[in-house]
Nucleic acid binder design. Structure first.
Lengths: 203, 203
DNA sequence: GTCTATAGCGCGATAGAC
DNA sequence: GTCTATCGCGCTATAGAC
């Protein structure tokens, strides 16, 4: 059996609080979340929350840093990998993101919404060490001789991957929720890289 | 001169409150917004807010309904227009959305984030009278004989249009904000319909 | 480390004068 | 209709016993 189990019962108290906080913050956002909700979710007393983390604010910063890392940690290593082609990068990014987002569908809307509330605060958490401009990804794009700005490709890639999760509530009401969402996402794993290759070929 | 001026000074008090509430809610979200902020922004007293609208909650519902209409009102009339081709629909939707989002960049993240907090509550506000399945848009797609589910096209369209606005804080930190964002969006008005036509041709 | 009890205060809402 | 003043709740945070 694996050492790390999902619904582990004997986590340290600190870990239990972080798990609970992550869940409650991600679902409700900072402003709507109550420390009492988090304490109850963690199965501990409210006072303990302030014992381990100094305040709701501090706890939030810890969680937020983790969530940002979860959302963007995927991207930069792949973009800067010299051993893969552009096409392989498209596939890797698409598959990694869709798998991750299937498990954490509320993650993007949470992070993006909280970032908007205070854009300066977490800016340094996102910045890759190397700017995108100097990435292997951009170099490879330029070798293709495309006139289209590399940014468009990144926007299209992330937009086509992430938007279906962010826009799920709307898209579902428009169709009456009669869609098989997981199956559609599985299809997109193959389709998105194909579409990006087409954009690349044409450009 | 136009009768309706942007920074009109002599709006009715009710309108001033709605303007202010729209601004504050959209910027901060429901949970982080304070009724005192809204009153100050409107240049009126806090008590008046409860005089015109019964509560923060009620005021929010009014604003939310308007914002949802703003975000999705564009879509369905175009999708159900029998007088335009698919290609023309791509162009119309792209241009209308980018123009609107340039003026209201915080709109999508606000609506999507609040919808996630309470998906049931505003579901009826979004539902088009006719389901997407029965729309002219889907009929036209089916006539093309594509095997790809119509939903993918809608996701790609909305994703490529809306994501750059939603993800602006991230995308900017990745590049160091050295991009000319408005110019990129202007380019996308032409590029997105082209990309969608390619997807259509290949499918 | 973990609990109970409570301090302290910001918030939404209202009473009541004008 | 619009204001000032204030209520009272619910929240975060802390004191203090165990």
């Amino acid at each position: 059996m694996a050492k790390v189990v999902k619904a582990e019962m004997d986590l340290s108290t600190e870990e239990k609080i972080k798990e609970a906080a992550s869940k409650v913050f991600t679902k409700k956002g900072y402003g709507n979340a109550r420390t009492r909700d988090i304490a109850e979710e963690a199965g501990i007393n409210l006072a303990l929350l302030n014992y381990y983390f100094r305040s709701k604010e501090k706890l939030f910063e810890v969680i937020m840093a983790e969530r940002i890392q979860k959302l963007f940690g995927i991207l930069t290593p792949i973009l800067n990998d010299s051993d893969t082609t552009l096409q392989e990068k498209f596939v890797k990014i698409t598959e990694s993101y869709i798998d991750m987002l299937n498990e954490h569908p509320d993650l993007p809307i949470f992070v993006l919404s909280e970032l908007r509330n205070d854009p300066e605060r977490f800016a340094d958490r996102i910045q890759a060490k190397t700017h995108l401009t100097k990435s292997v990804f951009v170099k490879q794009l330029q070798e293709k001789g495309t006139e289209i700005h590399p940014f468009h490709f990144l926007m299209n890639l992330l937009g086509m991957i992430i938007f279906p999760f962010v826009g799920k509530p709307i898209l579902q009401t428009v169709t009456g929720g009669e869609e098989n969402y997981p199956a559609l996402m599985e299809q997109r794993k193959k389709l998105i890289p194909e579409w990006l290759n087409m954009m690349l070929a044409k450009a």
